[in-house]
Design a protein around this nucleic acid. Structure first.
Lengths: 139, 139
DNA sequence: CGGCATTTGTTTGCATGCAAATCAGTTTGA
DNA sequence: TCAAACTGATTTGCATGCAAACAAATGCCG
């Protein structure tokens, strides 16, 4: 028959994750209006790892092929990345930061760190480390 | 100049939250294909609190007015909720579960709890409680 | 070598999710 | 009371995010 535990929405991990994400996104877009969190993730990965194929970039930033295409397209329209064809593999689209992309990343990275800090502001230093460790285990 | 801390995408709370959410959504949609997590949240709140206005329902489920309208519309098309006008306030749209909505909620609630469990599967009982407590503080 | 599986990328369709503008109805306060 | 402020709802526009179907190019294996 019925379950022994009641279902309390406010205690479900999915609901809490969604609300925490909402809060983080709001803080980010307020601090860094020029790009979104996902767009910034792309800039960060390209900065870190250098140019790579579009699908590879998607895997590095946890976006599927359809999603990364849209993100790259919008970043290209903003002038922050540019795409070229891989001469060794005609399927591949190579995505690279433009000088403007490098610059905006460099200008924004401190603010991005500040947003991460703001998001975790209700927690002590120890709690932050614990939360990140626990959350990381879920993936 | 520059920041003292390097920016590591994999350690940013926003990126980790996004990936954890992705994992949870994948588990949910596999276990419960008929409705999405947000749609299920709406069913749960209506079950818990009874009929209420559309915007109120949005606040109860952490969705803004534009989003809750779409979710309610899709649930109505599925036959799980129905809307009516509040005779005391002609602006309001009252949203209520249909018998089919009650039924699908009752049938799925155990599975929804199982999905929450699956999402937290990598953690011990103590770690789960800690994670939920820490995450809840962020909101 | 040649066919088949794999990989890369694109497109379509659907479902959130938020900002901003707008309209209708209700409440409040001078 | 009546205008202003507020609330509820809708619409538009933009940005993820995923599934599925497809085409093109590459890799592998018999």
């Amino acid at each position: 028959m019925g379950s022994d535990k009641p279902y309390k929405l406010d205690e479900q991990i999915g609901f809490i994750l969604r609300r925490a994400t909402q809060r983080h996104l709001a803080l980010f877009s307020e601090a860094i209006p020029v790009v979104t969190t996902t767009q910034f993730a792309v800039l960060a990965r390209l900065q870190e790892l250098g140019p790579m194929s579009q699908n590879h970039l998607g895997r590095e930033t946890a976006m599927d092929a359809a999603t990364i295409k849209g993100v790259v397209g919008r970043l290209a329209k903003l002038g922050f990345v540019e795409t070229s064809h891989d001469p060794n593999d005609r399927r591949r689209v190579i995505v690279a930061l433009t000088p403007a992309g490098h610059q905006v990343y460099a200008q924004m990275v401190d603010q991005a760190l500040a947003v991460s800090d703001q998001t975790l502001a209700p927690l002590t230093e120890q709690e932050r480390a614990r939360l990140l460790a626990l959350l990381s285990k879920l993936v």
